[in-house]
Computed example of a mutant assay.
Amino acid sequence: MTTEHPVDEHHWPATQVRRLCARVAEVAEGGLDLRARPDAAVVRRWLAARLAFGVTTAALGYTVLVADELVTNAYEHTGAPRRLRYTRHRTGLLLEVTDAAPHRTRTLAAIRDGVREYGTGLAVVTSSALDWGVHHDAAEKTVWALLPGLSR
């Protein structure tokens, strides 16, 4: 005698569960090595591909714009970009760009205080982010921006 089981809509094959778990983990946090200086379009596509899961188009656009400004600044003003990192929090999405120029923060402080000696990249960050800042130690500097949550 053969027993047939009804299709359980809540039971997924193990391979699908592993793929979904990997996708959710990838959406929660990730990082991109910038030491080889990938092209800005590559960086934008990489970030958008990881964050587009369950996100409005406008929120994704602002996030990619802010990341683009942070990465561009690391490329242009430090010459030593290291990594782009994103982390989802309950309060929003944290973007961090780290470089190997820990003492180049005078311009950042001036922009934060409303003085613009150079371009408008961090002004865009200021107007789009909930908050942003700089953390540095003896070896590196990280410029971070906290953006509103990315959900529908």
Rank of each mutant, 00 (worst) to 15 (best):
D99Y: 04
E76A: 13
G92H: 04
D99A: 05
L94N: 11
H77V: 02
T91D: 11
A109T: 13
S128I: 12
V134N: 12
L130H: 09
R104L: 09
G114M: 08
H89N: 10
Y86D: 01
H103K: 11
A100P: 07
T107L: 12
P81W: 00
H89I: 02
A80F: 06
H136N: 06
S127Y: 15
E76Y: 10
Y75L: 01
A129V: 00
A123F: 14
P81G: 05
P102G: 02
E96S: 06
V124E: 00
E96A: 07
T87E: 07
L95C: 00
G121R: 08
A101R: 09
H77S: 04
H135K: 15
R106I: 03
Y86S: 02
L122Y: 04
R104N: 12
G114F: 04
L130Q: 07
E96R: 10
R82G: 03
R83Q: 09
H77F: 10
V115E: 15
A100M: 04
R83G: 04
T87P: 10
L84C: 06
R83Y: 10
H136A: 04
T105R: 13
V125K: 00
R82Q: 07
V125H: 01
G92D: 06
H77E: 04
A110L: 10
L122G: 06
L108M: 08
D113N: 14
T87F: 13
A138L: 14
W132H: 01
T105L: 08
T72K: 12
Y75M: 06
Y75H: 02
G133I: 01
T72L: 12
R104S: 11
A101Y: 04
T78W: 03
A123T: 13
N73A: 05
T105S: 07
A123P: 08
R90E: 03
T87L: 12
P102M: 04
V115L: 15
V124G: 03
Y75A: 06
D113Y: 11
A74W: 08
D99S: 04
V115K: 15
